[in-house]
Amino acid sequence: MTVAAPAAPLVDAAGTEELPPPRRRVGSGAAAVLGLVPFAAYLLIFLALPTIVTVASGFVDADGSFTLSNVAALADPVIVQTFANSAWLSALTAAGGALIGALACYAMAGLPATGRTRRLVDAASGVLAQFGGVMLAFAFIATIGLQGLVTLTLKDRFGIDLFAEGAWIYALPGLILPYLFFQVPLMVITFMPAMGALRPQWAEANLTLGGTRTGFWRHIGIPVLAPSFLASLLLLFANAFSSYATAAALASQGSQIVPLQIRTALTSETLLGRENLAGALALGMIVVMAVTMSLYALVQRRAARWQR
């Protein structure tokens, strides 16, 4: 113990950031605080102010006086239906994306993280998860649009008319496939690190104790991965819920989901006979996003237990 004692403070000094460093001056104190001002001002004007304006505009009428009529409009059947559509689309594509993405992660389980396959998949997932928006809409117009490759092939070779019941690609169901196209890669990006936290030793221990492969997944794999899966699911939901560009480029008419309803409210003067409805709709979106992301943070904290 006497030998170890002098070494202990050294370990502390290296291991913690709390100890005062020998020389911590970066100019004078006032100058350092002044250095924070430009960025703080920037965030204030372009992050805090727009958020406050958005929320506040939901409570203001055309003359600038306080009103609850906009927020009350959130209970209008049309608006409720829009939120239901958004929630339904987001939940469906989040669940589908999470399942397919998790399967893809399972297929890569045990591959070295620095290997060629993993690197390629990482890069491809990164691109495709970013690939939302206008370009994705054009990809699907070329695929399952009225003149798309898949549409024409099905019609000419197999006599199947994709659009026998109308051009659904430009309506709500048409968004499901494009959304999956960015949900699955996002799942791979977020879920793969959790998969990597599964230790081969656990499988060995399971084997030594007479367990089977199915037993490993039932008693170890799935319980350990469940919180991460749920966290990713919530993130995917938030991702789909806040997505605008793909829908805007595909569905040029109608406002089936909340972001498109906000577009209509912003570009046309009145919607449902009310001004400033965009603010109320945005407020509704903020509430949904806040709930989803808070749940995500909670579950993620639980999930982080297994990922050092």
Binding site: L47, P50, I52, V53, S242, Y244, M289
Partner: peptide, 18 residues
């Protein structure tokens, strides 16, 4: 990390007057 939770479509409502 906050902007992740604030969709662009929401931000734009507040950015318009700015």
């Amino acid at each position: 990390l906050l902007p992740i939770s604030i969709p662009a479509i929401v931000l734009v409502v507040g950015l318009a007057p700015i």
